[in-house]
Nucleic acid binder design. Structure first.
Lengths: 230, 230
DNA sequence: AATCGTCGGATTGTTGAACAATCGGAGAAA
DNA sequence: TTTCTCCGATTGTTCAACAATCCGACGATT
């Protein structure tokens, strides 16, 4: 394989890699299914995930479910209590600050680097997506657009590792939101912020974009703490 | 359980949590053993890890080894090639920049927050640890002290999540170092930097500390790229 | 009545064996 | 040399079993 790769160049290798991920293992598919149910709020924080039940429901072996659990536990979406089982993770008051600490570090750093025009365009696209959702009164779409916006900001850095870290953090937050339903106008207030941040980014005023983003995150954390925290 | 916890207060709950981690599962112990061998360079990047071999060597089942692999893969220490096996991860040229992008985001953000006196003291302790190792001509100790230094900087933020991210990144870098042995004075040149950064931190000049740290990371990345990159 | 053991059922942790699917390489054929 | 085919080895997955552990219920003691 290494010889054929060297001969055929990186194009084929990339295609092979794409084909590989196109046929994920059963354990990966189980993990994906559970991730989906978690994101959709079908599995609420604190809920218990019984191995045998999931194994039956999805028609796979218990061991395979176990491997899927290992994946999800590594992503903090699920918590293992030895000899007791795995439970859907539930963020406590302290976790809110923790998550936002990560977001501040990653997002502010990413935006301060600027990023290529295509990536800036992706940020703009997320802003417009949010506006469209607002116009359509699509609350869920508004939330998704907001996550896309922040994901696009991190993507400015062009770092695989930062991207995966961010997507994990966003998955955690998504989980968290299902705990207490947010009011209908929760995200709407953030639209002008996103617009302003994006404009500063497009104008090349990275310092200002960074400051706005930081202020936004601080405000967002306060709000989250007020809604959930004690 | 919840009732007794509520009655006994957080002290007992913390003790229980401590006892829990004190009895890790077999899979966790296997993962820990492999992590150790990886850190010590016993398993070099690119090396193949055969399930049955490891299962025999450690006297555990293949399924258990598999669970351990899932852990390590989530930490990027190991790469799974479907139907071919798992291999010790080997950082390519692009990964160097990627890893340093994460470090810049996390470390600079952490130091800009300052941190409690105890945590600043931990940074100072790492600096002194490095000086002692230099005096003793202990190259390995010098490397460890350097990692402790940067770990202590991230710990300033007091974020569990940032800490685990950082330790994973450091584990990746440790792996990377074994690929090509660094020259004896590789770390020694960084001692004055660490001292200066620590002094600025202690003096409360966070802006300066952040700038110094950023410059350090940029220089370090250049050097790594020169040694390994293409 | 409240607390404290004790017991039993249920679930997890781990093992061992089995089988299909897949891969890489060795050798045969062109 | 290049290509094709086949074989051995390893992975992916399942199944069944067992010990260890936990939870809750039931009953005994003060």
């Amino acid at each position: 394989m290494t010889t054929s790769e060297a001969a055929a160049g990186p194009a084929l290798a990339a295609a092979a890699a794409r084909l590989r991920v196109a046929v994920p293992s059963v354990a990966d598919r189980v993990a994906a299914e559970l991730r989906l149910q978690l994101a959709e709020g079908l599995l609420l924080p604190g809920a218990r995930l019984t191995e045998s039940t999931i194994a039956e429901d999805l028609g796979v072996s218990r061991n395979t479910v176990r491997e899927a659990f290992a994946e999800l536990a590594a992503e903090r979406l699920v918590v293992r209590h030895p000899n007791r089982g795995v439970f859907v993770a539930s963020l406590e008051a302290g976790d809110i600050h923790d998550v936002y600490t990560v977001r501040r570090a990653i997002e502010v750093s990413a935006i301060s680097g600027g990023g290529s025009p295509e990536r800036v365009a992706a940020v703009r696209a997320a802003v417009e997506e949010g506006k469209a959702a607002a116009a359509a009164n699509d609350e869920e779409g508004l939330g998704n657009a907001n996550q896309h916006f922040h994901g696009a900001i991190v993507a400015l850095a062009g770092s695989r590792r930062l991207d995966t870290i961010m997507s994990q953090v966003l998955a955690e937050m998504r989980l968290f939101f299902h705990k207490a339903t947010v009011d209908a106008h929760f995200y709407r207030g953030y639209l002008p912020d996103n617009e302003e941040i994006c404009s500063a980014l497009e104008a090349g005023d990275l310092d200002r974009a960074g400051e706005l983003l930081l202020a936004y995150l601080n405000r967002s954390e306060e709000r989250q703490a007020a809604v959930h925290g004690e």
